[in-house]
């Protein structure tokens, strides 16, 4: 079936088309051809070229494009990374400016507050939990810093309290982080949660982060948590 027509364009290449095993004929079994170009006399040779010339030029350009693509690929492949990386917030640089809550491509943001229990002081008057001048040290919403009430306060032995983040509610605004870092141990810090982050190639929050706190870290160690030895 191939080459019945010099400019045969059956669409499937070289004789691979046809019905295969199916009994029902499909339009694929029809020979499709490109309409022959009208013969025209012109001073511009390329425009009035016969199909063979056109095909030759097309093939040459195709080869050239492939060459350029291959060259670019090899160039980039040389610098392409061996290890996968993901975005993370460096807590030593983060200033908890609220951009994380507002600029992530996800709503709510993939950034959440993370409680690092080993360095938490378990304070009764937690400045990450309470407004600067609380009416009372209880769990009333008016006393809380968190706009969504995402921090749970749980009494342990007197005078200690445990503070947990309900990530379903946390929007990553960092208000509690400010309170905790300024007056407390800084056990609250903002981190990108990788169960939510879609790992955009150019993180939308990183583009607006005023403190350059967004860094790429190896995917094998995707969090930058504070420890007692290494504080922010």
């Amino acid at each position: 079936m191939a080459d019945q027509h010099p400019s045969s364009q059956c669409g499937c290449g070289s004789g691979a088309c046809g019905n295969g095993g199916s009994a029902k004929p499909s339009p694929a079994s029809i020979q499709f051809k490109k309409p022959a170009s009208a013969p025209a006399k012109s001073a511009v040779p390329a425009a009035a070229a016969p199909p063979s010339r056109r095909q030759f030029v097309g093939g040459a350009l195709r080869g050239a494009f492939l060459f350029v693509l291959g060259a670019a690929t090899s160039l980039i492949a040389r610098v392409s990374q061996k290890e996968r990386t993901v975005w993370q917030i460096d807590p030593t640089k983060c200033i908890a400016c609220t951009n994380c809550a507002n600029h992530c491509v996800l709503t709510p943001s993939a950034v959440k507050c993370v409680q690092q229990y080993p360095i938490c002081g378990y304070c009764k008057l937690c400045t990450g939990y309470f407004e600067p001048e609380p009416n009372a040290l209880n769990t009333a919403a008016e006393n809380q810093v968190c706009p969504t009430g995402a921090i749970e306060r749980r009494a342990l032995e007197d005078p200690y309290y445990e503070y947990n983040i309900d990530e379903e509610l946390c929007i990553g605004c960092g208000k509690c982080v400010v309170g905790c870092v300024v007056f407390g141990n800084g056990s609250f810090s903002l981190q990108i949660r990788h169960d939510r982050c879609v790992n955009c190639n150019e993180c939308a929050i990183a583009m607006v982060c005023p403190a350059d706190a967004f860094v790429r870290v190896p995917a094998s160690q995707p969090y930058l948590l504070k420890t007692r030895e290494k504080q922010g």
């Binding site: 030593t92 990788h194 948590l225």
Partner: peptide, 29 residues
């Protein structure tokens, strides 16, 4: 903020067995 973070309130040492510290969750990418 960064320059002000410090261990102002040393984490309490709970009696063994009275309190288990919850782990800081780190969902993987």
């Amino acid at each position: 903020l960064a320059t002000f973070a410090a261990e102002r309130f040393p984490p309490p040492e709970f009696e063994p067995g009275t309190y288990t510290m919850p782990p800081t969750t780190t969902p993987p990418p």
